[in-house]
C-alpha cells in the first residue's frame, strides 16, 4: 500500500487565517493536528495538536508556569480571548522547519517512520509539484496497517 491509497482530504488553514479559526477547525474536525498551506496550496508547516495549542496560549504563560498559576479560575477559563487578531503566521516559529510531508508513492513504513521520528500524528501527502494532495492521520495509518489480531 502507498500513501496515495490511504490519504484523505482534511481541512487546512493558511498563514493569514486567525489562530482562533485554526483552533476551531481542529476541534470541530477532531483532527490530531493541522496543515498550514501557502498561497499555492503547498504545505508550509504541519502542526501536531499540541503545537496548535501552543499558538493559542500566550507565550508568557508557556515560558513561566508560575505566572500561569497566579491567574484565577474565572480568568483562566478565558485565556484564549487574549489571542485577539493574531494570525497563524504571527504564531509560527521564526525558524523555518521543513513540513512533515511524504510523496504519493511513499510506503506505509516510510509514513510510520516519519511520524515516529518527528512525533507528528499528521503527515501531509504532496504530489510531484509539491502541492497538497491529501493527509494521513495517525489513526488512519494504524487502521490501514495489517496488524495481527490480538486474539490470534
Amino acid at each position: 500500500m502507498q500513501a496515495r491509497d490511504i490519504a484523505v482530504q482534511l481541512p487546512t488553514v493558511t498563514v493569514h487565517d486567525p489562530v482562533a479559526k485554526a483552533v476551531r477547525v481542529m476541534a470541530m474536525g477532531g483532527l490530531p493536528g493541522l496543515i498550514v498551506v501557502d498561497d499555492k496550496s503547498r504545505p508550509r508547516m504541519v502542526l501536531p495538536g499540541t503545537q496548535v495549542l501552543r499558538m493559542a496560549v500566550p507565550g508568557a504563560f508557556q515560558e513561566d508556569p508560575a505566572l500561569a498559576r497566579t491567574i484565577d479560575e474565572a480568568h483562566a477559563d478565558l485565556f484564549w480571548q487574549a489571542l485577539g487578531g493574531l494570525t497563524v503566521g504571527d504564531c509560527l516559529p521564526r525558524q523555518q522547519v521543513a513540513p512533515v510531508t511524504v510523496k504519493l508513492e511513499a510506503t506505509l513504513l516510510e509514513v510510520a517512520a516519519l511520524m515516529a521520528r518527528l512525533r507528528s500524528p499528521l503527515v501531509a501527502v504532496v504530489d510531484r509539484t509539491g502541492e497538497l494532495a491529501g493527509a494521513i492521520t495517525l489513526g488512519r495509518l494504524l487502521t490501514s496497517l495489517a496488524m495481527p489480531d490480538l486474539d490470534d
Binding site: 508560575a66 505566572l67 498559576r69 497566579t70 491567574i71 484565577d72 474565572a74 480568568h75
Partner: peptide, 10 residues
C-alpha cells in the same frame, strides 16, 4: 486583587 500571587511559589 483576584490574582493569586501565593500560588506562584509552589
Amino acid at each position: 486583587m483576584a490574582l493569586q500571587e501565593k500560588r506562584a511559589i509552589t
